[in-house]
Amino acid sequence: MTLHRGRGFASINYPIGMNLGGDPSQALVHSNPDGKFMVALSSIDLGQGMKSVTRQIAAETLGIPVEDVYVDTADSDTGPHCMGSFASRGTHRVGNAVIAAAREARSVMMEAAAQELEVNPDDLVTDGKGNIHVKGAPSKSITTAAACGAAQFKQGRTVSGRGIFLVPLSDVDPDTGEMTPVTCFAHAAMVVDIDVDDETGEVTVIEMNSAYEVGRALNPRLVEQQLIGGAWMGMSHALWETTEPYYPDRIHGPVDFNEYLMPGPGDIAPHHISVLERPAPDGPFGGKGPGEMCANPVLPAVANAVFNAVGVRIDELPITPEKVLRGIAAIGGPQPQPKW
């Protein structure tokens, strides 16, 4: 038995969002009587941080503390329309919609404050701590809560805003075939080191080193969290997961976690990540979003590493021990490729 060390590299461009009949998301923002703001979305947070990021974006745009913002994604029947949390589109599409809605709500809040302070709204600024004051005269101020309260109880205004962000459908040019389906791309590059056991066919991931370019990392810890977890999914897809591991047909497929394989906590490899920030011109505060591309570079990088280790080119996932052994047998024994 010999362990063959291999190194594989892959890089990807990943489109943010999709182009199926247009790609819109909406947001509604309004203040409550206590001066806190509610962001209503139908964009689901399934752990990826939708609520955290839209909360930050709303607070930043409104000019109020992040603690004063609630995000409600409870119900797609009663909330404003969203295409959904997929295609790595959440931060970009929904974030932009939230900015539009928060801007509109902010302008009403500033008008209400101006009326209370008897000044011109254009002379007012927010301090981000819950106060609105006259530019250059911090003592002439009103709290955002008091301004919103006055709007509702004295002035009869709704401190609210509507926002939509739409990337319209890009049709194919009938003459040239050209289209512009995507407004921005995220990027990643990854180097994976593995060991291939030429007796058992097992592939062990030793180390991953990666660089991800995600636009502005609006919440750096959540970005890192996504990248770590997503790379695990990529590793799992490359080497373990499949719904149809056995032939001849689906009926022999896995039906529970005993048969559906995934790497456990003992199978993970050290993963060193660099996050590169190149703000997207059309992104909310420059953000694109990590999303699906967290997992993508791992698969081709692992396949390339297997080739580098034993000279077997496997083009069907997952790269199971059986496929590795059959591949090695087909070329008459392991053929390690040049090392780096």
């Binding site: 752990g47 770590i228 695990w232 999914m233 976690f257 456990g264 906590p265 993970i268 993963h271």
Partner: peptide
């Protein structure tokens, strides 16, 4: 690692 090896996580990649 041994203590949590009976628990499946789909999101975090276990490291955190």
């Amino acid at each position: 690692v041994e203590a949590i090896s009976g628990n499946i996580c789909r999101c975090t990649g276990y490291e955190p």
